[in-house]
Amino acid sequence: MDAILLQVLNGLDKGAAYALIALGLTLIFGTLGVVNFAHGALFMLGAFCAVTINKVLSLQKVVLSQTETTAWGTPLEIRTPFAQEWFGDFGLTIIDYSVPLSILLAIPFMLIVGVVMERGLIRYFYKRPHAEQILVTFGLAIVLQEIIKAFFGANPIQQNAPELLQGAIDFGAMFGDPGALVYPLWRMVYLGFSVVVILSVFAFLQFTTFGMVVRAGMADRETVGLLGIDIDRRFTIVFGIAAVVAGTAGVMYTPILPPDYHMGMEFLVLSFVVVVVGGMGSLGGAVSAGFLLGILQSFASMTEIRDLLAKVGIVGLDQIIIYLIAIVILLVRPRGLMGRKGVME
């Protein structure tokens, strides 16, 4: 029982990342009809927002000590971050919380990146064949990746969660069985964060006038345009929002996975599968398929199940289960779990 719960939790936090990227993907897809192969790169850009903020905050002032010397007899260098020098202990707290704080940078930055991307490049491709849309966004993904690589190098850069959130929660202790179910605190934060983001995107689309117009545009773009509404401008903003969702997902994921320049592409392939399984153009489908596939993947990597499968002669199912499920779903329900009729056919 504990093991099953643990796997569900494990699956949920991985699924949360898939769901967030897939949500943005399907949002762009449903509004603009473009498959954005650069969406993984946006996730990666978000993660590197966190890296940048951390680097900037921990800029250090180096003073040569007058009295102390190192073991080699040279004057000892005293390094103090500027943040500490200016704000004292509060500065240290700021550095500690660099990852959550990066969201403040990531939101405007990703919004700008998204809008520039859409206005500057992607809008010229609405009327061109799908193959060319895929190719141009794919090329863009390579460019973004390589720019990041040129600035930050090819190695993963470790980011730490705030000290307060680094520990683990002992769920077992809450139910009178300490140690039975221990789970890292940050992953719970991530899960909570993604639920909040997903709910707010849905609320935005469901309860605001802007969201209503966007939904109307998704259903019938031409008619909304004929009613005198500038739907293109709203769709541009939707693209920006999708970029923000992917970017903040990347920011919060950094303590779980040290970011490197090609992390986006690995997530992108899986997120595509998630979108296809959930059904192209269906937001609910994308989110639920994200969590579903995340949980299934973590179940397939459970030791017990692996042993069981190994006895039947199946090894390494956890590596390929997502793809297998996608194939089965597409064969049985070609539109995906919640796909709408007439989208991209």
Partner: peptide, 25 residues
């Protein structure tokens, strides 16, 4: 069985699956 974007994504998924199979499984 699918065309357009679905086809691209499916082939991508298959290739990634083959890669995972070859790399570890």
């Amino acid at each position: 069985r699918r065309s357009g974007i679905y086809f691209s994504i499916l082939t991508l998924a298959f290739a990634q699956m083959c890669y995972n199979l070859a790399y570890s499984v």
